[in-house]
Design a protein around this nucleic acid. Sequence first.
DNA 1: CAAAAAATGTTCCATATGGAGCGATCTGCG
DNA 2: CGCAGATCGCTCCATATGGAACATTTTTTG
Lengths: 152, 152
Amino acid sequence: MKLLDIIDGTPIRYGYRIAFLTNFYREPLLRRMELEHGIIRPEWTVLICLSFRDGLNPRDICEITEQPRNTVSRAVTSLTRKGLIVPAADPADARRKVLRITEAGRAAYERIMPMFVEGERKLMACLTERERGDLDRLLDKLCRAVPGWVGG
Amino acid sequence: MKLLDIIDGTPIRYGYRIAFLTNFYREPLLRRMELEHGIIRPEWTVLICLSFRDGLNPRDICEITEQPRNTVSRAVTSLTRKGLIVPAADPADARRKVLRITEAGRAAYERIMPMFVEGERKLMACLTERERGDLDRLLDKLCRAVPGWVGG
DNA sequence: CAAAAAATGTTCCATATGGAGCGATCTGCG
DNA sequence: CGCAGATCGCTCCATATGGAACATTTTTTG
């Protein structure tokens, strides 16, 4: 008996399976990341953000990742201690910090990301090219619609 | 700037968006459930399992939900204290408990589940009937393939 | 049949997480 | 300018979570 077997017995078939996939794709990788690289989820999300756009504030990262401020604050502290990012004063606003990813930070990102890429490859291996295209389009539509209903 | 905006900058487009949808669909509902009904995630998964098939053991629930044993153990204890389930001795194996959902437990399930159904409705509202059919088929394929690669 | 190994559920402990509130700073309005 | 209110990041605290070890019971093995 597995979670899959009770999906047909629940009235939330879509939500259930999407959460199911997330559980099996993401959670094991997050645990491996912590074990093998000593990086935990909030730290990882900060690295991803800064890797995409350097010089963000903690506040920006809260907004992007929807994480609470204290969670981001802790991640910034620990990443700084590890030398993966460097916080600087924001000349325009003394309350803010400008966060910059270091070389070591980029290296950590480049070391960890392939793990998630490989996980995604396994996840998607069962689909044909055409099916991936369909899924891509559907996910895009679903994600773009989120801001319209979330919070309400 | 939102998470959506950096999706194109990441090499894990599918995994990212699936996790994104889970975050916005499930997490707010779990928080509301705790606030309004005093039920937390592990308790909810136990209720779902027993609602689908009464008389399961904690061990079965661990297997179905992939939750650690101590988490399920705690959920069983608290649900019992709340009168939502009743544990009995398993005559076939003295180590095991047979868990049965109570009337109050079923009532709680019937009260909470509509919240998740409504959340799913919002999530899926952007898709046409045809697109839902496509997504249904794709999710089915993805989920069925999970046991083949998970853990490896 | 006896001892080793596995299974089941619990407890202990370390840590991750989020809410609330704090001090410092900035903004808007008179 | 001066003050009320908003914003930013941090700390405190309560709780959720998972790993490891434990006692009890069952299964396997010699």
